[in-house]
């Protein structure tokens, strides 16, 4: 079997009375793209935020690269976070900074002794690979939603992460831009050799980018496997309707 890079067991999380995750088990293997499906409010964002320690789990275990997240000291957690790229649902670009400064910000604070030239080469290279070299001096407010997403992805790639977490990379984008983002995600995996979790509502995206899909329902993963396995053998009505809704003939 392939090597596990992240592993969740019996993970639970509630906010007050609201039980969001209720015993989640999920493995992420090295080099795979895992797609997480689930309807709005099912706890997908919460799940990956726990994975990088932005939120604290209630119970269960979360291991990333062999380390239990909740037991790490801040320093160790930060070291681990550098190996994880997190692309936020709404891009989360620093809106007081230009695109260049947005990308430089995490780089110069985490990698010491870079020359101006090395920094520029790295930034320009990444902007090229997300297809936005001309935006380097723009402010985030001047970018479209799709452009922001791509800059957000480029910014997380600047620290060469081994795991990429994409929170709804295609939400709210037109179908053509969606295809572009999907291609970008696949391309990132090939070029940077990452393992990734892609959260989405969008089955086209799931089919295009995912090696495996996992469906989050009622705070648990009800079906995990290859795309065809999950949807062709689906017994749960809700999984079926998810499929039908996305591919209306």
């Amino acid at each position: 079997m392939m090597e596990k890079i992240a592993e969740m067991k019996g993970l639970t999380k509630s906010f007050g009375d609201l039980k969001v995750l209720q015993g989640v088990d999920l493995d992420l293997y090295k080099g795979e793209n895992l797609v997480v499906l689930g309807k709005s409010g099912s706890g997908k964002s919460v799940l990956i935020k726990i994975l990088v320690g932005l939120l604290k789990k209630d119970e269960g275990s979360v291991m990333v690269m062999g380390k239990e997240i909740s037991e790490l000291k801040l320093k160790e957690l930060n070291a681990l976070r550098l190996k994880i790229g997190f692309s936020f649902q709404n891009s989360a670009l620093y809106d007081s900074m230009t695109v260049r400064e947005n990308m430089e910000f995490p780089l110069v604070r985490n990698v010491k002794n870079l020359t101006r030239k090395e920094i520029d080469t790295k930034i320009e290279g990444l902007l090229d690979s997300v297809g936005l070299p001309q935006s380097i001096n723009q402010m985030p407010s001047e970018l479209s939603g799709g452009q922001k997403k791509r800059i957000g992805i480029a910014r997380t790639l600047i620290l060469n992460p081994q795991i990429m977490l994409y929170d709804e990379p295609t939400a709210g984008l037109d179908p053509i831009t969606c295809v572009e983002i999907n291609t970008l995600i696949t391309q990132v995996r090939e070029e940077y050799n990452t393992s990734s979790i892609v959260i989405t509502h969008d089955l086209t995206c799931a089919k295009a980018t995912g090696d495996r899909v996992a469906v989050l329902l009622d705070g648990q993963f009800k079906a995990v496997g290859e795309f065809s396995e999950v949807f062709e053998n689906a017994t749960d009505e809700r999984i079926k309707s998810f499929y039908d809704y996305n591919f209306i003939q």
Binding site: V52, L54, A79, R81, I84, A92, F105, P106, R109, T156
Partner: peptide, 12 residues
């Protein structure tokens, strides 16, 4: 807009 979270996940 999660910019503070974004700093945190990049170890800043």
């Amino acid at each position: 807009t999660e910019q503070i979270d974004a700093m945190e996940v990049s170890a800043i």
